[in-house]
């Protein structure tokens, strides 16, 4: 009987098994993390908008409070995207000729809403309520990131469910005093662990219920 395989087949066969294992492992790695990579979750990606609105300019530069535009954030599930009228409150007077603002003026003229593209778009089976988070001491910044430093709006977090649950399982990590909710430069104190616990107790946050399915999926 002649040899069927050359001598090199010995290492080649073992190497190919190893390679196959590695390939499978790496495919698994990709599958496990595909939803966590920025390309899929769009973290740090500025979506193109009809007007290149700069939160950085308006918040840090002008000192305009979040609630000036997002007026319903404290009282309803939806934070509110400002109507064109809000823009025109100032821009009917300043930067009136700026070409960049032409869509705003056109919207005002034609009484047609500006079609913003949603940056923080949760799946439709998720029920998210801004007001409860705001009133229980979760800062804007905790979810939306340093919006006051964003020339163009982008997601700061994946908004994956694991990210939501990270807080819902232990809100004491992120809770802050109510009057600091809109403070974009809030720094967590060194004793956040104890302070957070006392705030959770003070604000009567029912941690045992926060991970119920129906809290978010209704």
């Amino acid at each position: 009987m002649a040899q069927v395989f050359p001598r090199s087949a010995n290492w080649a066969s073992k190497a190919s098994i190893l390679a196959a294992l590695l390939i499978v492992a790496s495919i698994l790695g990709v599958v496990l993390n595909i939803n966590r990579i920025d390309y899929v979750s769009m973290v740090g990606v500025a979506i193109d908008q009809p007007v290149h609105f700069s939160h950085k300019h308006h918040v840090t530069g002008m000192g305009i409070d979040c609630r000036y535009c997002h007026t319903t954030v404290e009282v309803s599930a939806f934070a509110g995207v400002p109507p064109t009228e809000t823009c025109m409150t100032c821009h009917s007077q300043i930067w009136t000729e700026a070409p960049i603002l032409e869509p705003v003026r056109a919207s005002f003229r034609d009484n047609k809403a500006i079609e913003w593209n949603r940056v923080h778009d949760l799946p439709d089976f998720v029920y998210f309520n801004h007001s409860i988070h705001v009133s229980q001491g979760i800062g804007c910044q905790s979810c939306h990131g340093q919006v006051d430093q964003m020339p163009l709006m982008m997601k700061a977090h994946t908004l994956n469910m694991e990210w939501c649950l990270d807080c819902h399982r232990d809100p004491a990590q992120f809770i802050r005093p109510r009057d600091q909710v809109f403070n974009m430069n809030y720094e967590y104190p060194a004793n956040q662990e104890t302070l957070g616990k006392s705030l959770v107790a003070d604000y009567d946050v029912q941690t045992s219920q926060l991970t119920n399915c129906s809290i978010c999926h209704r």
């Binding site: 939803n35 966590r36 994956n160 469910m161 694991e162 649950l165």
Partner: peptide, 8 residues
């Protein structure tokens, strides 16, 4: 059971 991004 794998560590999915839903953490469930």
């Amino acid at each position: 059971p794998y560590p999915n991004s839903m953490d469930i």
